[in-house]
């Protein structure tokens, strides 16, 4: 796994930087929970790294990991608000033609047979969701596919936010087991 270029030439030996290098992998996995892909998570991690420069290292000495995760949480919450969710809500969810496939990087310049493979995979993903228990499937569709927040999903379904989280948890387990490579 390649580290971002700038982390390789860290000349500062402060505890915050050491903590960053030590926690790099965990921070990446944390950020990736809400990004579109691993590459976006890497970008966010890079943003976070750049923010370390402006910080007084002394203040962070006592609990560097705590500070890093506070920063990571802020980065993530800001990122989600500014990009993923709004972009998705504006996206053509209701547009039911396959032409939307072309908007995705996978299919953008893909050859015809690659597009066919991508289409087949979409069908498999959809079937796996269709076979979830009804309430679990509904929570997953609203939250993950339509991009509603957990609270909005709870409101739409008339259940508690905690229940939505449980449905999502079970759906992730079920879908991962079925669809993992």
């Amino acid at each position: 796994m390649a580290a971002p270029r700038s982390t390789e030439r860290v000349d500062d030996e402060g505890p915050l930087y050491r903590a960053f290098l030590e926690k790099r992998e965990a921070l990446l996995l944390f950020l990736a929970a809400r990004t579109r892909c691993m590459a976006t998570a890497e970008d966010l991690l890079q943003d976070l790294y750049l923010k370390l420069h402006g910080l007084d290292d002394e203040a962070a000495v006592r609990a560097p990991a705590g500070l890093l995760y506070r920063m990571a949480t802020n980065v993530l919450v800001d990122h989600v608000r500014s990009r993923d969710r709004s972009a998705r809500r504006d996206a053509s969810w209701r547009q039911e033609t396959r032409s939307t496939l072309a908007g995705e990087d996978v299919a953008e310049e893909a050859a015809a047979d690659e597009a066919l493979i991508a289409q087949e995979r979409v069908r498999l993903l959809a079937e796996a969701v269709a076979e979830l228990p009804p309430q679990m499937g509904r929570a997953f569709r609203l939250h993950k596919l339509k991009g509603l927040t957990q609270a909005q999903t709870a409101q739409a379904m008339g259940v508690s936010v905690k229940m939505v989280e449980q449905h999502i948890q079970a759906a992730v387990r079920n879908l991962t087991r079925r669809l993992r490579p």
């Binding site: 396959r98 939307t100 995979r121 959809a126 969701v129 991962t176």
Partner: peptide
């Protein structure tokens, strides 16, 4: 592993939504 599947859904959410409607 879970993240890989999660990201896959993220990447093609509109398409999967359309396919589900069709199903």
């Amino acid at each position: 592993e879970a993240l890989a599947v999660w990201h896959e859904f993220e990447a093609v959410a509109p398409e999967v939504g359309a396919e589900l409607a069709e199903l």
